[in-house]
């Protein structure tokens, strides 16, 4: 049994099992689920769709993982993504000939910068003013959508500049371009958090901020940094969302992304109580959510009802993470007598 213990002890084990079970379910019940064709020079199929549509959530989950590791939460990511979409659409805009108003690259940089500033704002509120993270980010959660609507003059803004489409719709070597963005950001984040002391600092702040401070860690700046990074990730996610449909809709872009991102992180094995985090797990979590969504679609359930399923998953995960719940279940099965 030693090998079994070692296997289940691995942090990635349970998220991967959940994903595998979902995929196995689809293998039997969803026809042509794993079929991959080559169409117009790139790979095409359900699995590719999951990777492509899941990339915004994967990006958000990377940022969210670090925030949650500091015992924080960022529920403004969906609205910040909407701001990013709004800014980039207004800057690039362009006429029907596809000539952008402003250079595409600079517009993208500016949009992501705006979102990083939004993240910095959240970080300032949490670390300097000492607001509870939920309240601090709640301000941008709704005000952000207002800002997005004001940027686009409360209209849906269309983009016609062709090169911009590659971010959300393009393919490189047969795989979606957005996936490469996820991989690059993931590798960079993994490197910075695992090969430098930063990851350790973040975990220390999440486990005990006071102790971290006494150990000489500048907890305030660490917190500021993770929220700014979360804003940065939301900015990139917003670009993908915008590029996917080549338009920015301040009202509907990125709605519900915050729950998806939090869910992905929690599914991936990072506890909402802060401390140890698992970036790869969050990616797997995001894939689980996206697979679940595709599965729900495959059964012709209206997409809106998927929210109910997700909410139920949150309840279950929260319960599983609650020590009170675990001990009461253990009691139910008479473990207490065994222990005594």
């Amino acid at each position: 049994m030693a090998w079994w213990k070692r296997l289940t002890g691995k942090k990635l084990f349970w998220p991967l099992v959940a994903l595998a079970l979902l995929l196995a379910f689809n293998l039997f019940f969803t026809p042509h689920f794993f079929q991959i064709q080559i169409k117009q020079g790139h790979l095409y199929g359900n699995v590719i769709d999951i990777l492509k549509n899941g990339s915004p959530i994967m990006l958000l989950a990377i940022g969210m993982t670090l925030v949650i590791a500091t015992k924080g939460i960022d529920i403004s990511v969906g609205s910040v993504a909407a701001i990013s979409a709004g800014v980039v659409a207004m800057l690039i805009g362009g006429d029907l000939q596809g000539i952008p108003k402003h250079p595409i690259f600079e517009s993208i940089v500016l949009a992501v910068l705006v979102c990083t500033v939004a993240g910095l704002w959240n970080g300032m509120l949490v670390s300097r003013i000492g607001m509870q993270p939920i309240i601090a980010t709640l301000i941008l959660f709704v005000a952000g959508r207002g800002i997005a609507m004001v940027t686009t003059n409360a209209m849906v803004v269309w983009l016609y500049a062709k090169p911009f489409a590659i971010i959300g719709q393009g393919y490189v070597f047969g795989l979606p371009f957005s996936l490469y963005m996820v991989v690059v950001l993931l590798l960079m984040t993994l490197f910075v958090t695992r090969r430098t002391a930063l990851g350790l600092f973040i975990e220390a702040v999440g486990i005990n901020p006071t102790a971290a401070r006494f150990a000489g860690i500048n907890a305030k700046n660490i917190i500021l940094l993770v929220y700014a990074f979360s804003g940065f990730c939301a900015g990139i996610a917003g670009l993908i969302v915008c590029s996917n449909v080549m338009s920015a809709d301040g009202n509907n872009a990125g709605v519900g992304y915050e729950l998806d991102a939090i869910l992905a992180v929690v599914l991936g094995g990072t506890s909402l109580n802060g401390g140890k985090f698992n970036l790869l797990g969050s990616i797997v979590g995001a894939l689980i959510i996206e697979t679940l969504t595709v599965t729900i679609y495959a059964f012709n359930v209206p997409p809106e009802i998927a929210q109910v399923v997700k909410a139920v998953v949150v309840y279950i995960i929260s319960l599983l993470q609650s020590s009170k719940f675990r001990s009461s279940v253990a009691n139910m099965f008479g473990r207490r007598e065994l222990a005594a």
């Binding site: 924080g72 949490v126 000492g130 993270p133 939920i134 309240i135 907890a219 305030k220 917190i223």
Partner: peptide
């Protein structure tokens, strides 16, 4: 000496 904000 105040610890960092706790979530409600």
């Amino acid at each position: 000496a105040e610890p960092l904000p706790r979530r409600s």
